[in-house]
Structure formats: C-alpha cells, structure tokens
Simulated assay, not measured.
Amino acid sequence: MLGIFGLIAVAVFIVFLVGLTVKVWMNKTYSGTKKVFLSLAVLLFMIVLVYGLFFFVLVDSDQASYYTTGGKHFEDIDNEMILENAKEADYQVQGPFYVNVRPQDSAGIYPDDLPELEQHLGTDYILKFSTYYYNADKIMEIFFIAEDETIITFFNYSRPDPYFSPFKVEHLPDDRWMIDRMIAVFGFDEQTARSHLQEMKTEIENENRPKMEVARPIVPSALYADLQKMSTSSNFSLTYGEGNTALMFYEDERLAGKINCVVPNHRIVHETDEATYTVKVDKLGGVDLYVELAAGERIPEETYTAGFKKMFRDIGLPEAAVEEYEFNYSSSAW
C-alpha cells in the first residue's frame, strides 16, 4: 500500500511543483513564451504523476481471489459464541457490517415500532426498501434512504422492453391503489397523496421518470400492517452471510409484497503466508467464504478447503460443511 507517508511525500512534491511554477512566472528575466513553455512542462509532469500514482494504486491494491457461488445458511447457530470462539483462536474479528459497509455509512432506517420483525431479527437491523406487487407485471418500490428521505419508484414488466422502453402513465397501477398505499405508509391525507401522484405523472409525461421523492419518513408499523392486511401468510427469506433478508407476504400463492432488511455480519479473518481467509457470518446464521491472494496467484483447492475446515473447527461450525461450498477463481480484482 502507498501508506500515509507516501501520500504526504506526493502532496509535498505537488506543492513544490506549484511553487516552482509561481517562481517561474515571477522571474522577470524569462520571456512570456519561456514562461508558458515551462508552465506547460510542469503541468504535463503533474498529469503524468497523477496518472502514474493512480496506476500504482490499482496495481498495488490488486488481488486474486477464490469466492463462493453462494453462501450457506446454518440453522440454530450461536452467533455470539462463534465470534467469541474466533477471538479466542486469535483470528481477527471485523465488523459489524451491513452487507459490506459500516453502520454509519449504510442507507436505510432503524425502526423501533416493529415487534413482529424484532422477534426474528433482533433490534439492530436496518429497513432498506419495500416492494408492493400490484400484479405480476406492475410493482411499486419504496426505498428508505434516510429518516427524512424516501423514494418511490414504479416498474412495469409488460412493456415491450421493460428496461429501456419509455415508461408512460398507463404503465402505472390503478390510481386508487397507489393513493391507498401512500396514505397507509406515510399517513398522508387524500389531497396530499393525490398531489404527489399528479407531480409524478407530470414527470412521467415530460421525462418518462416514474419516481417520486418524499421528504418525509414512512411509518414502519403502518407499512407492516398494510402488507399484512393484503396477505394471507408471510415468512422470512434465509440469509447467506451478508445479512440480507426479506419478510415475504403472500396472498394465497401470489407474492403480494415484501420488506427487505439487513442484519449485521462480522468477518472472521485468518492471514497465512500464502493467503488471507475470510469467513463472513451474519446474525441469522448465514455464512460465506472468501480467499484473497496476490494478483495472479493460485493455491490448490485442498489447501484453502483445509484452511477453512480448521477455521470452522476453531469457531464452532461443522467443518464437513466446507465441502458443500463451490468456489470460483478470479486472477484480478480489475
């Protein structure tokens, strides 16, 4: 890695070049042409330096990896005990993370009025977004960006090209249905809900943009109640290491909606001479595996599976389960 001292040295050198350029222009013995030529030379050198530094950072941070085709879910594991075992085995324990970011950097909201979700997820989960299915083709998605920022978007799979063809007003669900959802989720009155809907329709007509931004938080308990009212059953999807899960609501066999959440995960890291082994464990029992090596390097499959088996044994997971993972190889991060 370049390191803090390397960055300081580069910054000092750039300041030196800027100072040199100023000195050139203050020198009264140089002609205007010579000053321009020297300034362009310094500028060219600085551009080469910046691109060279960028290339160096890319090369220096490059790595090969073995990664799984998908994590596994383990029933009835004690997440806290696994992390404690990892510390006792002198492994690095990093986190918590929400997928791949620290809690302070993760978009979403922390609800405090959903005991139905807390019973399964605990209290430190994040609500990310929710999806309503008007029918098999038309969906409404609500993204919880922050406590006072919510984005609603619509999608229609029945268009000739769902991802690239223009979105039109007729591709939206029924007005009454959309208004009812906004009243339920945000606590809007009828007039406010209609006003937001009309603004979005104008955006669609002008820019084919089926999106509305609401500077108001949702009411999580009202969202849950609305989806529950529309459904006959519900269940949580499994996690596989990163902590992503969804509470799925069904009306008989039809998917009526879902609430997408993230629970924290931790990374258990073991560094050896040839590789860095990472076991990612989320709070609900999902476990994923990852191996990092120098760019272009490879190690035999029996080597990295043996490494993970030892880690599983040390932290209290069944080592035989390592054989159930399938790995892909990448020679470079770029």
Rank of each mutant, 00 (worst) to 15 (best):
R194N: 11
V219Q: 10
L17S: 08
D76Q: 14
L238K: 13
T68P: 08
T68V: 15
F188V: 02
I82W: 05
V287T: 03
F186W: 11
K87W: 00
F56Y: 15
R298K: 14
F327D: 06
I145P: 01
I4N: 04
L127F: 10
M212I: 14
P96Q: 12
Y290F: 13
A256D: 04
I299K: 06
C261G: 00
Y67N: 14
K211N: 06
G257Y: 05
Q228F: 07
D137A: 11
N85W: 08
F155Y: 08
M46D: 11
S130Y: 01
I179D: 08
M178C: 10
V15K: 06
V50I: 14
Y125D: 04
G70H: 09
S221I: 06
I151C: 01
V101W: 07
Y240S: 09
D273V: 07
Q94F: 01
R194C: 00
I183Q: 11
L127G: 04
Q198P: 00
L227A: 02
G32C: 01
E203H: 07
I268M: 06
H196W: 06
F155T: 02
Y133N: 11
Y67C: 01
A9L: 14
Y51P: 00
Y30L: 14
M178T: 07
K128T: 10
L247Q: 09
G122I: 10
D90K: 15
I259M: 12
V10G: 01
I179K: 13
E319V: 00
V22H: 03
V50G: 09
A215Y: 10
M140N: 07
Q94L: 15
I152A: 05
I8R: 11
F56M: 13
E80Y: 09
V36N: 07
A246G: 03
Y30H: 12
E319R: 12
S332N: 04
P115N: 04
Y240G: 03
P115Y: 03
V263Y: 04
A256I: 03
L58I: 05
L20N: 08
R313C: 00
G32H: 14
Y30C: 00
V42K: 01
V22Y: 06
K138R: 15
T192L: 13
V169C: 03
V287Q: 00
N235R: 08
G71V: 02
G241I: 04
F37Q: 10
T245S: 13
L17R: 11
M46V: 14
E324L: 03
D174M: 07
F308Q: 08
E149V: 01
V18A: 14
T29A: 09
G286R: 02
G52R: 12
F154S: 01
F308S: 09
K283C: 04
T272Y: 05
T232I: 08
R176A: 13
